[in-house]
Amino acid sequence: MSDAAYGPAMNRVDTQPEAVPEPDATATSSAPPATRRARAIRTAGLWLAPVMIGLLALLFFFYYRGLQADGNSTVISALDWGDKLLPQTIRIVYIAFWSTVIVILVAVPLGIVLTRPAVRRISPFVLAVANSGQALPAYGLLVIFLGIMGQGRFTVIVALSLYALLPVLRNTMVGLDGVDRSVIEAGRGMGMTKMQALTRIELPLAVPIVIAGVRTALTLNIGMATLAFLIGGGGLGITIQTGLKLNQDPILIVGAWLVALVALSFDWLGAVAERVLKPRGL
């Protein structure tokens, strides 16, 4: 938890309950120098990342320019910026954004409910399902929803929301479970109501892990939004697909590169959000 900052979102997929360090009350006032240096590197990474992404974007720009200069008409028309690439990029972001919003609105409250004492018993079961849900093929889920809801971006958004629900649900539950019981006990002992203990202690302390889950969800959603084209949801997947069909590596590369740029940018935004939203003092 202490090494949030520019750690990639997927870091937290494996947040096993036992890997969550207990917030230690008998404080460790100064971290060993090695840890501090590593933390400094991660902080530097947070600032360095946009530079690296910018560099990749610049390389992309030159590559793209080069392709247009080559004058292969198939390639040029498949990679038209205003007609193809820009709307496709926007579509991916649109899909990923809304499915992530839905995921948060559903998974966080659900995670809160599932960690309340009354239903706590079933939480290991839910976590086990959430765990094996990782093997669910995104591709298959999309096609199944195609059968249920028909073509289009809304089908994609619903399928994605379901798919990315698990990491956020899981992290919300693990995060809330990981809050030091003695801190809650102290709060309740001072006369906080259950609601106050939840909103003032448990949720703020679980925030870093919940956000890590949201970052994972965002990553999954962008990845799956790339597949949206399979069921008529559009997006940059179309360009990649075109490249594959026409056996044109440049089209393939441009599509994939752009997807990677979008994914990296959003992961960075997630890292920044994680840093900003993490309560001070942790």
Binding site: P23, A25, T26, D180, S182, V183, I184, E185, A186, G187, G189, M190, R200, I201, P204, L205, P279, R280, G281, L282
Partner: peptide, 14 residues
């Protein structure tokens, strides 16, 4: 007033 062995200070508050 209630004081416990684990203290239970809120780590996210000053």
């Amino acid at each position: 007033g209630y004081v416990i062995q684990q203290i239970g200070l809120f780590p996210h508050q000053t």
